[in-house]
């Protein structure tokens, strides 16, 4: 269970203070929680706060009741938090196999590594020894990013727009991947997404806009409301 208590995050931009997250309170104890909301609303910032990449200005983060607010990225990773970036990072020289192995945290066989790649629709043989460099396409990188989180297999996984850049055909498979994760996980999955079909497989949905949690509740409660709003004046939510 992940608890965010009174989280705020301020940065100073050109000597002006900007509050990116304002008093966020959120309890994640379901298997699958989707976070949605307009561009620039603060979703990725929230994910980075959870992973430890940003330190909140105020507030507390608890993982299974343990205060992890002052824990480093590495410590949180080892406590069971995984984070798939919205924009995956490229590495000259490191191969897909290297990153999957580092993700798994131990030596794994080629066939094990390949299983994760196949899950995300990459023909493993063609990719396992590829360098994670500029030659990989955006969609390929996103899939490798997802495979890495699967290889980690931690109790809390945060995916930041995993579907972005993934083609339509693969999108159906991706939905299946997340459905399967949903079924199998003993922990929680948080997915930041703008896609109705991803929101639709969530247990709960949080709407984050303007640095605040505007709504948080069961899918049945939130989704119809979001879809209605889209037709009225809430044009910002791309669903």
């Amino acid at each position: 269970m992940l608890e965010l208590k009174n989280i705020s995050f301020k940065v100073s931009v050109e000597n002006q203070e900007k509050e990116i997250l304002k008093n966020v309170n959120l309890v994640i104890d379901d298997k699958f929680v989707a976070i949605t909301g307009p561009n620039g609303g603060g979703k990725s910032t929230l994910a980075k706060i959870i992973a430890g990449i940003y330190q909140p200005t105020t507030g507390q983060i608890l993982l299974d009741g343990v205060d992890i607010t002052n824990k480093s990225i590495t410590e949180r990773a080892n406590l069971g938090i995984s984070f798939a970036f919205q924009q995956p990072v490229r590495f000259k020289g490191l191969t897909v196999r290297d990153l999957i192995t580092l993700s798994a945290g131990k030596q794994i066989t080629v066939s094990e590594a390949c299983t994760y790649l196949s899950e995300v629709g990459l023909c493993a043989r063609d990719y396992i020894d590829r360098e994670i460099n500029a030659s990989l396409s955006g969609g390929e990188l996103k899939r490798i990013e997802i495979a890495m989180i699967m290889a980690r297999g931690t109790k809390l996984s945060v995916f930041d727009e995993p579907e972005a850049g993934i083609d339509l055909w693969s999108f159906n498979n991706l939905i299946r991947v997340f459905e399967k994760m949903h079924e199998k996980t003993n922990g929680s999955i948080i997915i930041i997404s703008h896609q109705e079909r991803i929101l639709d497989i969530a247990d709960k949905i949080a709407l984050v806009a303007n640095g605040e949690v505007k709504k948080y509740g069961s899918k049945e409660e939130i989704l119809p409301e979001l879809l209605r709003k889209e037709n009225t004046n809430f044009g910002c939510v791309k669903l």
């Binding site: 970036f85 995956p88 580092l102 945290g105």
Partner: peptide
């Protein structure tokens, strides 16, 4: 690149 370090740290490396 800072983000390369961050990525590997989120995998549990120091």
């Amino acid at each position: 690149a800072g983000e390369q370090l961050l990525k590997l740290m989120t995998l549990g490396l120091t």
